[in-house]
Simulated scan of single mutants.
Amino acid sequence: MFGLFGTQFAPEKDIPSQEGKVIVVTGGNAGIGKETILQLCKHSPKKVFLATRNEAKAKDAIESINSQLPQPADIVFVPLNLSNLASVAAAADTLNQSTDRIDLLFLNAGIMNLPPGKTDDGFDIQFGTNHIGHFLLTTRLLPLLKQTVTKYNADVRVLSISSMANMAAPSLDTIISEDLWKKGGWTSYASSKAANILFAAELAKRHPEITAMSIHPGLIKTDLYSETFENSYFMRFGMALVGPLVYHDAVYGALTQLWTATADKNKIQQGGFYSPVGKLQKGNSWANNADASKKLWEWTEEKLKEKGF
């Protein structure tokens, strides 16, 4: 059972039955996403779609997850490259054609502190992947999410995985500027994490029949840090020195998104930003910035329209 600084929560005991539910997890082939699928599959969902770039890694993850279950779960790989809008649109089409409901959508995939660069469509690589790709996927799935509400399950949730790095983000004008990619890897990453919070808050406002929230999973040692460690002796040294004291594993990292996905709906604040475990960050400046969330949503829609999406 985990309850550090927040809610007491033990997934195997506290997650209710997921029978009949259809779940989508982006980046579910490793780390927090894989652990999220494993824990939910212990509670008998109808189907899980694992959306990620690498088919071989996805199949390895599915095999690993099923090896830990009493009976194999129905987990299906969906190709998804969030840094390519055509791939995102194709993934949404695949999902729309493969199921008539989605009960839980985890916008879990992400990249962190990469060298300056751009997506295939010309956006800052981290902002474009972590925010714009997920924005397009979600909006393309909105009719299906709403159909689930009216036809199957009034409690449909979208969970956007952010980070406390949002506090290092620059102004919104800088975030949406064409020069963001020149500002450095951490600024780019922090901007994308602020955008994840703004997106969840605005989604909650525009589509209140869907419960939307954003999440900081904690300081988790996952593959996200591989680029940072590879390029920085100081980060490698620092991790060796203090990592065991401050960083958690993926099992812990999945807790807050599992809690916000499955806890009593009355305990969840629509559009809220949560940290471990299930702790609402009431004072987060991005979650409370209605003007910025509206502006980012409209800006993203316009940019996607310009790209033909």
Score class of each variant (00 low, 15 high):
residue 158 V to E: 03
residue 158 V to L: 06
residue 159 L to C: 10
residue 159 L to A: 03
residue 162 S to M: 04
residue 162 S to Q: 09
residue 164 M to W: 01
residue 164 M to Y: 04
residue 164 M to F: 09
residue 165 A to L: 07
residue 166 N to K: 10
residue 168 A to D: 12
residue 168 A to T: 07
residue 169 A to I: 04
residue 169 A to M: 05
residue 169 A to S: 12
residue 169 A to H: 03
residue 171 S to I: 10
residue 171 S to K: 11
residue 173 D to R: 07
residue 173 D to L: 13
residue 173 D to N: 14
residue 174 T to D: 12
residue 174 T to S: 14
residue 175 I to N: 09
residue 176 I to H: 06
residue 177 S to I: 09
residue 178 E to P: 09
residue 179 D to K: 15
residue 180 L to N: 06
residue 180 L to A: 09
residue 181 W to L: 14
residue 182 K to D: 14
residue 182 K to N: 13
residue 182 K to A: 14
residue 182 K to Q: 15
residue 184 G to T: 06
residue 185 G to T: 10
residue 185 G to A: 11
residue 187 T to N: 10
residue 187 T to H: 05
residue 188 S to M: 10
residue 188 S to L: 11
residue 192 S to Y: 01
residue 193 K to G: 01
residue 196 N to V: 03
residue 196 N to I: 02
residue 196 N to S: 12
residue 197 I to T: 07
residue 198 L to T: 05
residue 198 L to G: 02
residue 198 L to R: 04
residue 200 A to W: 02
residue 201 A to G: 13
residue 201 A to S: 14
residue 202 E to F: 01
residue 203 L to C: 05
residue 203 L to Y: 01
residue 204 A to T: 01
residue 205 K to N: 08
residue 205 K to W: 13
residue 206 R to W: 00
residue 206 R to N: 00
residue 207 H to D: 12
residue 208 P to E: 03
residue 212 A to Q: 01
residue 214 S to D: 08
residue 214 S to F: 01
residue 215 I to N: 02
residue 216 H to P: 10
residue 218 G to V: 00
residue 219 L to I: 13
residue 219 L to S: 12
residue 222 T to Q: 07
residue 222 T to M: 00
residue 224 L to A: 01
residue 225 Y to G: 13
residue 225 Y to L: 15
residue 225 Y to A: 14
residue 225 Y to C: 09
residue 226 S to F: 09
residue 226 S to M: 14
residue 226 S to Y: 08
